[in-house]
Design a protein around this nucleic acid. Structure first.
Lengths: 343, 343
DNA sequence: CTGAAAGCGCTTACAG
DNA sequence: CTGAAAGCGCTTACAG
């Protein structure tokens, strides 16, 4: 493994500016106790020389760590890559670097990644993946992160976690309700749900929203087929196959995210089932390709890029007494994959 | 910005193992000059205590930097997010952390990111975006990187660059040829090309491949309409609109990547132009959604995830006298978006 | 407001 | 094979 080489140091800047190391350090850090005049001179010299502090030395000496660790389930899932895009934007504006790692939707692996990030002394940790419905699953991570925070680390998450930290909360329940209302409004009653494993709060919340909508129409979600696979296109395919097989009279399928919806559409196409003529399909998230599918996908839009920006913004604020919460808002986007129930 | 807190230090491990700091350091680094017995004891103690070296101290002291910087045009472009996925996999296996930054397809911005990465003293720099056809565009980056390498940094890239570094070369020309042959074999002659700006080597190489195929059939690419927009869905839409307007007799459209092809398909659908009945469409890359479009997309598959793995593998090897080159291979994937020329 | 000095936690010549 | 010591490039009390 290579090592970084010699470069311009702070002493060089200090010498050129005719001040001591300490003064140069204070001037560049923008700390108090340096006359405006001297501070300006130092900054100017630093500029001219193109000085950039060695982050290893700075951090070791007790200064700020300028890197943020971002944990996603999988970067090549568009939901996460859009979030990552938002995080990277803000980081770029702030001169921070973003380290991305995968959790692979596995709490143990995620814990290991967290520990690695902490051991690497990143200054900020962002978790973008869904929380787990069972608080015990997150207990080890919670402890790890609270120790990290008590040492000055900052943590913020996307989704409903049991981590006791600042959070950006996607409008999952309201979005689920909107989807349910939309389909019910079109007359659908035989609705099937392509869901991911029940262990995730994202899944529970979206389902809860759907259940609310059903309830208003005197229906119970318990009476609907809910097929649990996972949040991928393959998961959607498997779910659709099962729904077609076991519930052939289904007129609408709610996929709990767009990837699954894509898999559902693909399977329906393979079976020559017309969408939305025979079955309407909805997704969740509005990943950018959703508009370009055929038929284009009715879904709930979550502002993923903004969510990425928001979560880093939260972490950039000093820690508050009680965890902050920010809701994302959502929008039902009606496209061509839904239509009135076939008569 | 938070600072990392106190943690287990190497002295603690050394004390517990009853050896000096120096010996402990050598033992854990696996260097020579420590008896097997002592080394094992130190490693064991380190394990038990869960010691992880402070990377800032280690790097500052002249040790290895264990972070790799990855520059992509845009993480939320599936081509790049799949590559990033591969890089992150290998990094995870090696205990390395990956810092991702955007170049935004802007050479100046890219240069700034590169400088930032170098200033941050990452040990490895990976560039995933296309090279520029004009070597002068990359000259500043080339100088920056060669200084970086002479100080021990490692660099590897994906694509045809003028950077004098190890490279993974996507099979762009051969892929373009395959696409051309496929369409020509189906009888198409009035082929239009939805291309990105000519400044990128990726574009030139893919076009060169198409040109070769045409030539074998006695045709010249100069006689075909080549619309230059950019490598996005919107670029594809704009190109398709222009092609429909100015070359209404076109029977096949080659989009130079899948994102553009998605835009092309979307526009053709909006105009109720049958695919492939009236116009065949092909893309390039085979991003995962390509198989799920309607109609599913005929395209050239590039092993993006593997490319990510390969490029980091290259960088992990010691620098060689002359830059290494690895070709990726490709595969023509024929799906439903192409068919015989309409009679 | 400014500077000399200690210290952050490692690695690596330099002695032995 | 092993250890004492210097040094990496910063920041931050501590004096003045």
């Amino acid at each position: 493994m290579p090592k970084p080489g010699p470069r311009l140091r702070l002493v060089d800047v200090a010498e050129r500016a005719g001040v001591s190391l300490a003064t140069a350090s204070r001037a560049l850090a923008g700390r108090e106790g340096v006359s405006e005049e001297v501070a300006n001179r130092v900054r100017q010299v630093s500029q001219e020389l193109g000085y950039v502090a060695n982050p290893y030395a700075r951090t070791l000496a007790g200064g700020a760590s300028s890197t943020v660790g971002l944990v996603v389930h999988q970067v090549d899932d568009p939901y996460f890559s859009e979030i990552a895009g938002g995080v990277i934007q803000v980081a770029g504006e702030q001169g921070l670097l973003v380290q991305i790692c995968h959790s692979g939707r596995d709490p143990d692996y995620e814990l290991r990644q967290l520990r690695h990030l902490i051991a690497q002394r990143v200054g900020i940790i962002l978790i973008a993946g869904s929380g787990y419905a069972d608080p015990r699953v997150e207990a080890p991570a919670r402890h790890e992160l609270s120790a990290y925070q008590s040492l000055g680390g900052r943590v913020a998450v996307i989704g409903r976690h049991f981590l006791g930290v600042d959070a950006v909360l996607p409008d999952n329940t309201a979005g689920g309700r909107a989807l349910g209302e939309h389909l019910l409004g079109l007359g659908h009653r035989r609705i099937a749900i392509a869901s991911a494993t029940g262990g995730l709060t994202t899944v529970l919340d979206r389902l809860a929203g759907v259940a609310e909508a059903l309830q208003r129409h005197g229906l119970a979600i318990e009476d609907l087929p809910v097929v649990r696979t996972d949040f991928t296109r393959d998961g959607g395919r498997i779910a659709a196959e099962q729904i077609l097989r076991e519930h052939p009279d289904t007129t609408a399928i709610i996929a709990l995210n767009d990837s699954m919806a894509i898999g559902v559409l693909s399977t329906l196409r393979a079976h020559r089932v017309g969408v939305p003529d025979r079955i309407s399909v909805v997704g969740f998230n509005d990943v950018s390709v959703a508009a370009d599918l055929a038929p284009s996908l009715t879904t709930v839009r979550l502002p993923m890029t903004d969510m990425g920006r928001m979560v880093l913004d939260l972490a950039l604020k000093p820690r508050s007494k009680r965890p902050r919460r920010r809701s994302t808002g959502h929008a039902l986007v009606v496209r061509d994959s839904t239509g009135p129930v076939p008569s």
